[in-house]
Design a protein around this nucleic acid. Structure first.
Lengths: 209, 209
DNA sequence: GTCTATATTAAGATAGAC
DNA sequence: GTCTATCTTAATATAGAC
């Protein structure tokens, strides 16, 4: 269930290699589709050596999810109560889209897990994640009450930011296939589109002149 | 590779039972995570009998995907060039959201497949799906050129409709966990939120009075 | 068409030498 | 800490009787 604490240099290096390999393999094939053989090979270790560091396949997966969870939530954590509301939310969208571009494997790792019912993550979702979202939803409510942004359902606003940005990582293969070939980089277009979308959605309706 | 054509009553019934069972199991566990045992049990057949109807696990999966693809694209096909543009697009959003509510397993089946690189679907995406999207994107372009809706990137508009609506099926467990418990039905809230979002996004900017 | 029994392989995990 | 060899189980698929 628990991974060992890396103490020596060699342990640190191997543990890091395992996480990297596990991310690569789990994100591409899902938990069940991934094999220890693949992970061991990608990490440059033998299978028994892999299992010297972690007691089981599931332990690797759980450790990986929990290691990444924190970083994954940073963009939302950074939503600042003292900033200019619309600019804060647009900046959150940009950060999240950048995560999809720069860390698509992490996005797909979580997507795989959640689509299949989040069996190894449900506690973190109901705990840590829900707490953070509750906090930020309250912040957004405050901005709405103050007339800084247009009235929208704050939880669904957050869901929409997740779905719109993560789509470009999780469904990458579909997006590129439909945009037509490898020549197109979807992200600049996506950034412009999402900026437009959220600006129009969130700009407070000004009274008729 | 190819399923048999059901001819007798009994074959029809069994084939239907297999599709229903396969949808249930594949959508929940993904291709690799699903087992023939589970599917056979859910279909009320023995494993060899299952393999009398389909030559392999992969054949079942492929047949299921291709059978569902058509229905899955109906909401987009129904986008009508002769309708009122904004109302047409809002109606598309509503149809798609209803699909997430009424057919979440279908949504998760495709999500599982695409997140993992769409190995058994890429041809359909590049062919049939891309052709349909190209056609509807052109229609949307026309509406923009005519000033009927605000200018947005038509392909990303379609992506955004997919991601926003399918999120409520694919990430259902997360949505419900964050909204807090089984008492909440996310769909009425989602419908209202998405109606607001797309209305604000698509309404042509009226000149300043 | 359907079943029981079984062949075959793949994959998670362990034993034990070094 | 790392490896080779191996145990064990589970899963796809097939043989062959009925």
């Amino acid at each position: 269930m628990t991974e060992q604490r890396p103490r020596t240099r060699i342990q640190k290096r191997n543990t890091a290699a395992i996480f990297e390999a596990a991310l690569e393999v789990f994100s591409q094939h899902g938990f069940r589709g991934a094999t220890l053989d693949q992970i061991a090979k990608a990490a440059g270790l033998s299978k028994p050596n892999l299992l010297y560091y972690f007691p089981s396949k599931e332990a690797i997966h759980v450790a990986l999810l929990s290691k990444l969870m924190d970083t994954w939530l940073d963009p939302l954590r950074a939503l600042d109560a003292d900033g200019e509301p619309i600019e804060e939310l647009l900046a959150y969208v940009r950060r999240k889209l950048q995560m999809s571009r720069d860390f698509p494997r992490e996005s797909r790792l979580f997507a795989n897990e959640i689509v299949q019912g989040a069996p190894r993550m449900i506690a973190a979702i109901e705990g840590e994640l829900k707490a953070l979202v509750d906090e930020k939803a309250a912040l957004i409510e405050g901005w709405i009450a103050a007339g800084k942004i247009a009235a929208v359902h704050p939880y669904h606003l957050i869901f929409s930011i997740w779905s719109l940005t993560q789509h470009y990582a999780d469904f990458d293969v579909q997006v590129r296939a439909i945009l037509g070939g490898e020549t197109v980089d979807p992200f600049p277009q996506a950034e412009e589109y999402l900026e437009t979308l959220f600006t129009r959605l969130l700009s407070p309706v000004t009274g008729q002149v």
